[in-house]
């Protein structure tokens, strides 16, 4: 079985490399080693979203039973999104779980993830905190997501107010990422965030 998985990944590789999305730098796949079972994916944050211009790195693991089972995909780049864990990068997307179909490819998976960035599904969340923020205070969600994208995915649009708040906590001796998570979780209220970190 492993044979069919490897043979297919090799074919898909050529397909992705030739595809027009690659030509436009929207998606990218590369090998981690020679085994074809562990891959590195890359997607560009879609335009008109908080993720615009960011580059998000994905870890893709191909199971032995591929393509009869979906690849295991998670974000290596930290991201603020209702369907992606801000802690582990785990993705909640039906096609990577029970709605997988054997005709799907790395290309369609990456494009689906790109579409997921553009259209979050807060009713089927992976990260409950992010999902609540998305539903209740969508402005703060967008800014937070943009802030994360600019810091972790080198997206061009920065959020100076949020950068300042993170810098403040960092200057007080807190870990930058912890400070960012705490602030993001508490809608950028510095006191609440500090309490959260210290508790």
């Amino acid at each position: 079985m492993a044979n069919i998985a490897v043979a297919r990944i090799k074919r898909e590789f050529k397909e992705v490399v030739k595809s027009e999305e690659v030509a436009k730098c929207h998606i990218k796949v590369e090998l981690v080693d020679d085994s074809f079972t562990s891959l590195r994916g890359e997607i560009l944050g879609p335009p008109d979203t908080p993720y615009e211009g960011g580059t998000f790195i994905l870890d893709i693991r191909i199971p032995e039973t591929y393509p009869f089972n979906p690849p295991k995909v998670q974000f290596l780049t930290k991201i603020w999104h209702p369907n992606i864990s801000s802690v582990t990068g785990a993705i909640c997307l039906d096609i990577l779980k029970d709605q997988w179909a054997a005709a799907m490819t790395l290309r369609t998976v990456l494009l689906s993830l790109q579409a997921l960035l553009a259209a979050p599904e807060p009713d089927d969340p992976q990260d409950a905190v992010v999902a609540r923020q998305y539903k209740e205070t969508s402005d703060i969600f967008s800014q937070t997501a943009r802030h994360w994208a600019s810091n972790y995915a080198s997206a061009p649009h920065r959020e100076p107010v949020m950068d300042d708040k993170v810098a403040q906590l960092k200057n007080m001796g807190f870990d930058e990422h912890k400070a960012r998570v705490a602030l993001s979780t508490h809608n950028w209220d510095i006191e609440q965030a500090m309490e959260n970190i210290l508790s």
Binding site: F68, N69, D98, Q99, W100, A101, A102, A103, M104
Partner: peptide, 16 residues
């Protein structure tokens, strides 16, 4: 396949 729902595996993998 055993790991998916009946209606997933009995559907065409391309057009469902």
């Amino acid at each position: 396949s055993k790991q998916f729902e009946h209606k997933v595996i009995k559907a065409c993998p391309e057009c469902r």
